[in-house]
């Protein structure tokens, strides 16, 4: 039965249901239980923001705390995936990819190709991204474009509790390595989620809102920002179609192109910094494949080309908001040759 739960609860439920269903699924990461070797409680934290809470006692021996040693445990998750387990490793903040990237992009991503199609690496690396928590430059980045760039990785960026659960279950059952990007400001966002297990396939965009005047492609948390903008725009008679790619690799290019072919206008909203991000990638795609349909230049709404600032006065300017999206839409709708 569908009920309203949070993004955090949706992820926890997905992990629990898959651990229940398949005993090769294990969970590992820094403080995924919390309290290992300490005099106090076991399962003290359940992950730094509580996503894995309760799994430690429910699935004895299958939730592993790790030292703060990302290369070792991310690499271990990858090695274990080649040896019959389906590990879900938590790279606490996506910013920490810097200390373990080799294991992800030179090892996991390339095994299948460089071993001539004979490797299977069903690992999921869960990681938090995104600004808005005043966590500053090393705990706030939206680095999914870097993973998207790497052949061999699949990259998931869910925008709602429903997507979080279905995409997580798909990620765990998927036989390729998956980078699962959770926006840290979305854990308390609630939405309707079925109790049953279900999957959402990769490479199929969600169409969050139908509209004929402009296509807004928004990634992850930016979907809700785009929805807010679309509501404002509807009051002034502009109907925006909002497309949520759900996975940046694979990318559902067909749904994006079909929509732009109908609306003739594109705004891409991406929380990542502007060089070589999803906004540039999708814009290039549309400029190449749907040039004839475009009735105005493409607009990109992104973070500026800076590290994420700390002060709320700056961070609020850094993150794309509904007003900027609405302004971009107005620019493309009102554009005249």
């Amino acid at each position: 039965m569908a009920r309203t739960i949070s993004y955090r609860e949706a992820l926890n439920e997905a992990l629990a249901q898959e651990m229940e269903r398949d005993e090769s699924v294990i969970v590992l990461g820094e403080d995924n239980a919390g309290g290992a070797g300490s005099p106090g409680e076991d399962d003290a934290w359940g992950g730094v923001l509580g996503v894995t809470k309760g799994l430690y006692h429910r699935f004895p021996g299958r939730v592993l705390d790790t030292p703060i040693s990302e290369s070792a445990f991310v690499g271990a998750a990858i090695g274990a995936a080649t040896s019959g387990l389906r590990p879900v490793a938590e790279l606490m903040f996506i910013d920490f990819m810097g200390v373990c990237f080799d294991q992800i992009f030179n090892q996991a991503a390339k095994f299948r190709y460089m071993f001539g199609g004979k490797a299977k690496t069903p690992v999921v690396i869960r990681t938090m991204y995104g600004a808005g928590l005043r966590a500053a430059a090393q705990h706030s980045q939206a680095l999914y474009p870097i993973f998207t760039h790497i052949p061999g990785l699949k990259v998931v960026v869910p925008s709602s509790p429903y997507e979080a659960k279905g995409l997580m279950i798909q990620s765990i059952r998927d036989d390729d390595p998956v980078i699962f990007c959770e926006h840290k400001a979305m854990y308390d966002v609630t939405g309707e989620v079925p109790e049953d297990s279900y999957t959402i396939p990769f490479g199929e965009a969600g169409v969050v809102r139908d509209g004929d005047d402009v296509t807004i492609v928004a990634i992850g948390r930016m979907v809700s920002v785009a929805e807010e903008a679309a509501k404002q725009l509807a009051d002034s008679g502009v109907e925006a179609e909002i497309i949520d790619p759900r996975t940046t690799s694979p990318l559902d290019t067909e749904t994006i192109l079909e929509s732009v072919e109908n609306t003739g206008r594109l705004v891409v909203v991406d929380e990542a910094t502007p060089r070589c991000n999803l906004a540039t990638d999708i814009s290039a795609l549309v400029a190449k494949e749907a040039f004839g349909s475009l009735r105005a230049p493409i607009e990109m709404v992104t973070a500026p080309h800076t590290p994420v600032p700390f002060s709320d006065a700056l961070e609020d300017l850094y993150i794309p908001d509904a007003q900027r999206v609405a302004n971009a839409v107005k620019t493309v709708v009102e554009w005249k040759r």
Binding site: P194, D196, S197, Y198, T199, I200, P201, G206, V207, D210
Partner: peptide
């Protein structure tokens, strides 16, 4: 509608 197809896919993707 796209919504009808989406809703049916939501159903079809439930385990079982």
């Amino acid at each position: 509608t796209r919504q009808l197809a989406d809703d049916l896919m939501r159903y079809k993707r439930l385990d079982g």
